[in-house]
Each structure stands twice: as structure tokens, then as C-alpha cells.
Design a binder for these strands. Structure first.
Length: 564
RNA sequence: AGCCCCGUGGUGUAGCGGUUAUCACUUCGGACUCUGAAUCCGAUAACCCCAGUUCGAUUCUGGGCGGGGCUGCCA
């Protein structure tokens, strides 16, 4: 095991334990090989990230390699768009398949040859039954199936028919190639499963070269074997498929058609609270325009999370904490959020911006005067440098930071009270201006020139420090305030999951930011002090129209106190 | 219904014959603070049930019960 990665003091999950044993026993007599096998029929989401991280992670830890292989055996749903987005996402997560980019469709010819051998060995036959008949004759879980009348066709006839299937002599759905296993098996998958079906659908890679396509069960295991995969890691729903995986493999092994003997191991997939994960439902959100696309920042897709501003390192550390097991699980979204905050706290420059501006006029500050005040970019990491922020007579603070009639625990600005403006001065509220509806338009304050930089020479303390921006120098930008997409922990417990959509999952405001924000480049991340982490949108932001996505708020203890 | 899998605090996750049952997140306190952030400290809280094996079972065996998956010419 790679000593730098070996988690010697940590406990290993059951898959790593198995592999550790296999390595110790030199079971494979060669390097460990895994693969990430997406079907290019949708965008990757954080559930896939678990599989990517496991497969690539395990390979790295055991000095092995991990392939990227597309399981593209159903041309009706697959496309190049998905192939490309998947590669971008895997790279973004931090993994590299080097030159090992494979497609099951590249194995079609090989798979066909294997099938011919199985026919010759009397292990597969052409069945002329219709879809309905096959279904009927398969029986039920408590009743054995009926053997197909075509089950005992001669090898010659099967060979001839299979070849003609390939040549396109038969109608779609008129015949299939089935494995001859056991029609009375309690495992329904073993009752002579379909290996090939006729489908006159052009494939996004092989075009119209093929009119017959191999099924998943037949394809996947053989692709593993062809590539030399040692450990074929997949999710729990394939557990009942394992006997079939092994059957194809063992038949071909005994016919000397295979060199390698991969093994399938299943683990439980990731579920997240307040999130739906199935491709079908995500597609529905996109199609019904509930979100702006697969990469909408509220989506659990990797492209959505990326656009939202989640760092890949945060996703990896989240996955570390989630672990690998066979239990059904439902992870708290707050765990992911905590990993995101942890990562962003270390890496982001602090900056000041006001989301809901309230005008402040400093009565004793000279009109027209502008001071440049120094502010560190990170309170705990001086290596991240500092910048200058302009200060002037007219400023904006956050509406939430002023209350005319404050409750007992509120210690921000209110009439007569003194607070600090971050990295600037102490100010004291001396009056306010309201409009005819009674809404506060301006807060009038005085400042103490002695407190420049934010310290009082006489040592007097204030209870609060507020963020602010100078009115005339502020940069206007659009801020998209995102929140969780669903209101229920489990959106699916409602019959219609769309009914649990959070109507306030997106709030768009015009914010005012300090001048250093001008020209912020797409994808760059900041902490807006006291508010949260924001990321320049990679799609809609431009130098003229800055757009910030709120990745996540800061933990907000005050909002809890307020509620209670 | 059949087959397969799983069952440790609220959520994940370690431990696999003898432990004050681990760690993280959450929740609730407190300390500190030029972000009511971060950080630090503390608290609450768990072995599905019943038998059996054993001096001793969370750990082993059997049976229940509970949960999930599969039963597609999807993957």
C-alpha cells in the first residue's frame, strides 16, 4: 500500500479490508485495477462522486490504476454531451485516467465473438419469443419459468440466426440472444437472461454499424475482464446480479476466452437530505424549468456544485467522512455544508459587501473626504496580504444591523448606541430619517476620529463590529442567494416531490461591494464578511455585470437567538 | 410472494468475546473574539428483540422483528 496514503491508524472500510487481504495474499499477482463506469445518459451528481472517489482513491492507495469506462450499450439514451460533461467532472474532482479512456462500445466486436463461443458451447440460444411472451414465461418469484420452445435449437441454427441478427435481417424486437442458464432459479435474473437485442438505433459512437446491442449484465463483466479489472465496485442494487456476473465470467473463463477474473463488490450509494439524486428526477427539474439547467447552483450535480462554488477538496473531505459501507444511509446536508465552510474558511479572501443596503451619514465626517483604510485579506493568515478600502461620509451598512427598538440580545447599531465599523472607526447613532411610510431611509451617526483602524485608545469596548461600504466607491453587483431546493428532509416522502420545492431557494438582490471586487474573475471565491461565501458565476458574470453566487452562509448564531 | 443485503446515539461511522462503546456532523451550554464567523472547552444522546454458546456477548449461532434492493429486450 502507498505509505503516504495508507490509513494505517484509521480503520479501513470493508472494501479496503478485502483489497488489503487480496494484496497480502497476492491474489491477482499484478496491480490492483478498478474502473469508474458511468453511462453517458445524464450529468454526474454527488452520488457518482462517491463512486469516483472510491474507485480512483482505492487505486491510488494500493498503487494500482483506475480506468474511466463508459457503459454505453443503450444508444437510445446516450450522447456525446454527457460523455464530455462526465470527463470534465471527474477531472474537476481531482482524478486522472491518463490514457485509459474506454468505451464498452469499443468491445462490441469482442463481445460478439464471446457470444458466438457461448453459442458453440451450448450456453446461449436465439429466442423468437416476443417481449410479452418472455415476460410471461419467465414465471414469478414463487413459480418457476417455462423453458422457451427455442431453447434447444441446434448450435448451427443459433449461429446462423445470430449472424443474421447482426446483419439486420430481422425486425427490431423479433429475436434475442439468451443465455441458457436455469428457468427455475429463485433468482429471476438467472432465468435465461437476454444477452443481445435488436435495436435499429444509431449509436453515438458506432453509428449504424450495429443493429444488435449487448445488454448490461453481459457487457459490464466482460468489459471488466477485458481490461483486467480486479475489483469491480458498484452499488447495492447490483447485488442480485452478481451470480450472473460470475456466470458469464466463469463460462468464458472455462472456454479460455478470458485472461482475467474480476470480482464484483457492492456498497451502498449516497443519499442526502433535502436532495433528490435520481437522474430521472434531476432531468425532470431541468425539463420543467424549475432550475436553469443541469448546472443550476441548486442542483446536486457536480456541475451545479462547481458553479455554486463548492471546492472539490470539500467534496472529497465530505466523502471521507461519509465512509463506505453496505448500510442504507441518508446523510445530513449539514455535514456537506460543514465541509464546504471548513475548506472555504481556510482559502477565501475576506471582503466587505452589503446585500441589503441602509444608508449611513457620518455627520462629523468632512464632505468629500476619502480615506484609504488597510484591511487584511484573512484574519488568520497574514501571508494572504491586505488591501485598501475607501472610507467616506456616506456609507452603507446592512439593514439587519440596525434596529430602532432593539430586543435585549441585539447588540448591533440602534439609537444612542456605539459600534465599530470593521477596520475603520467607532460610530454612534445620533438620529434617523424616515420616509412617509415610516421606513428608515438614513441613519445619522457621529464617528470618533481617535478610533481609526477600529481601536479605541481609551480602551472602551463595543459589542458589535459591522461590515460596510463607502457609498460612492461601491461596486454594484448581482448577488444570487441560494438556499436548499427542497423543504423536506426527504423530498420523496411526498407523493409529488415537486410540491416540496423551496419557493425561496433563490433570492436575487443587488449588492454593493468594496472596490477591490471590480473585475473579479469567474469562479473566484470570497468570504463576504459576516454574510457567507460567494463565488463569481462562471456563466452569467462579466466585468460590466458582476454576478455572485452565494455558496453558503456563515454559521449564524444570531438568527437562532432571534428565533427563540 | 420469492431471492439477496443491511440493522451501534438525531445523522453517518469505528469497535467484532471482557472498552468509561470511537470519531465526525447536528443539538444545547460556556470561553474567546475588530466577522454573533473561526477557534477552544463542556453537555445530552446508541449496541432492534428473544433464545443459545460462554465465566463473560454490541461482538459468535439460531429464530424473530424492522428497513432496503431486485424480480426491464434500462444501467
Amino acid at each position: 500500500m502507498n505509505p503516504s496514503k495508507a490509513k494505517q491508524n484509521e480503520s479501513l472500510d470493508f472494501i479496503r479490508k478485502i483489497i488489503t487481504e487480496d494484496v497480502k495474499n497476492n491474489k491477482y499477482n499484478r496491480q490492483i485495477m478498478t474502473r469508474f463506469p458511468p453511462e453517458p445518459n445524464g450529468y454526474l451528481h454527488i452520488g457518482h462522486a462517491k463512486s469516483i472517489y472510491l474507485n480512483f482513491g482505492v487505486a491510488e492507495e494500493f498503487n494500482g490504476i483506475c480506468n474511466l469506462r463508459y457503459d454505453d450499450t443503450d444508444p437510445e439514451k446516450e450522447s456525446m454531451e454527457y460523455v464530455e460533461s462526465i470527463q470534465e467532472d471527474v477531472r474537476w474532482l481531482g482524478f486522472d485516467w491518463e490514457d485509459r479512456l474506454y468505451f464498452a462500445s469499443d468491445y462490441f466486436e469482442q463481445l460478439y465473438k464471446f457470444a458466438v463461443e457461448l453459442i458453440k458451447a451450448g450456453k446461449a440460444y436465439i429466442c423468437d419469443l416476443s417481449v410479452e411472451e418472455i415476460k410471461e414465461q419467465r414465471g414469478t418469484s414463487d413459480k418457476p419459468g417455462i423453458e422457451s420452445p427455442f431453447r434447444n435449437r441446434s448450435v448451427e441454427e443459433n449461429l446462423d440466426l445470430f449472424e443474421r441478427m447482426r446483419k439486420g435481417e430481422f425486425k427490431d424486437g423479433s429475436r434475442v440472444l439468451r443465455a441458457k442458464i436455469d428457468m427455475s432459479s429463485p433468482n429471476m435474473l438467472i432465468r435465461d437472461p437476454i444477452m443481445y437485442r435488436i435495436k435499429r438505433v444509431p449509436h453515438y459512437r458506432t453509428g449504424d454499424e450495429w443493429v444488435i446491442y449487448p445488454s448490461y449484465d453481459y457487457t459490464h463483466g466482460q468489459s471488466d475482464a477485458i481490461e483486467g479489472i480486479t475489483h469491480s465496485l458498484c452499488s447495492l442494487e447490483f447485488e442480485t446480479h452478481r451470480p450472473l456476473y460470475n456466470w458469464y465470467r466463469d463460462q468464458l473463463l472455462s472456454l479460455n476466452m478470458l485472461k482475467y477474473c474480476p470480482e464484483q463488490i457492492e456498497f451502498s450509494r449516497l443519499n442526502l437530505t433535502y436532495t433528490v439524486m435520481s437522474k430521472r428526477r434531476l432531468l425532470e427539474l431541468v425539463k420543467k424549468r424549475i432550475v436553469s439547467g443541469w448546472d443550476d447552483p441548486r442542483m446536486p450535480t457536480l456541475s451545479g456544485l462547481r458553479r455554486r462554488g463548492f471546492p472539490p477538496a470539500a467534496i472529497r473531505s465530505f466523502l471521507d467522512k461519509v465512509g463506505i459501507s453496505k448500510r442504507e444511509n441518508y446523510i445530513d446536508l449539514s455535514l456537506l455544508e460543514s465541509c464546504v465552510r471548513e475548506e472555504l474558511d481556510k482559502k477565501c479572501n475576506r471582503v466587505m459587501a452589503v446585500l441589503r443596503p441602509l444608508k449611513v451619514i457620518i455627520q462629523n465626517y468632512p464632505e468629500g473626504k476619502i480615506e484609504e483604510l488597510e484591511a487584511p485579506n484573512h484574519p488568520k493568515d497574514s501571508s494572504m496580504g491586505s488591501r485598501k478600502i475607501p472610507f467616506s461620509r456616506t456609507l452603507y451598512i446592512e439593514q439587519d444591523d440596525f434596529l430602532e427598538d432593539p430586543p435585549r440580545k441585539f447588540y448591533r447599531l440602534s439609537p444612542g448606541r456605539e459600534v465599530r465599523l470593521r477596520y475603520a472607526y467607532y460610530i454612534k447613532c445620533v438620529g434617523l430619517v424616515k420616509d412617509e411610510t415610516g421606513e428608515i431611509k438614513e441613519v445619522h451617526v457621529t464617528y470618533d476620529p481617535e478610533t481609526k483602524g477600529g481601536f479605541a485608545p481609551d480602551g472602551r469596548k463595543v459589542k458589535a463590529t459591522l461590515h460596510w461600504v463607502a457609498a460612492d466607491q461601491a461596486v454594484r453587483a448581482e448577488a444570487r442567494l441560494y438556499d436548499r431546493l427542497f423543504l423536506k428532509e426527504n423530498p420523496l416522502e411526498d407523493a409529488d416531490f415537486l410540491k416540496t420545492i423551496n419557493p425561496q431557494s433563490l433570492d436575487v438582490v443587488t449588492c454593493l461591494g468594496e472596490p477591490s471586487l471590480a473585475g473579479a474573475s469567474p469562479g473566484s471565491r470570497y468570504q463576504f464578511e459576516r454574510l457567507g461565501y460567494f463565488c463569481v458565476d462562471s456563466v452569467d458574470s462579466s466585468p460590466e455585470n458582476l454576478v455572485f453566487n452565494r455558496t453558503i452562509t456563515l454559521r449564524d448564531t444570531w438568527s437562532r437567538i432571534k428565533k427563540s
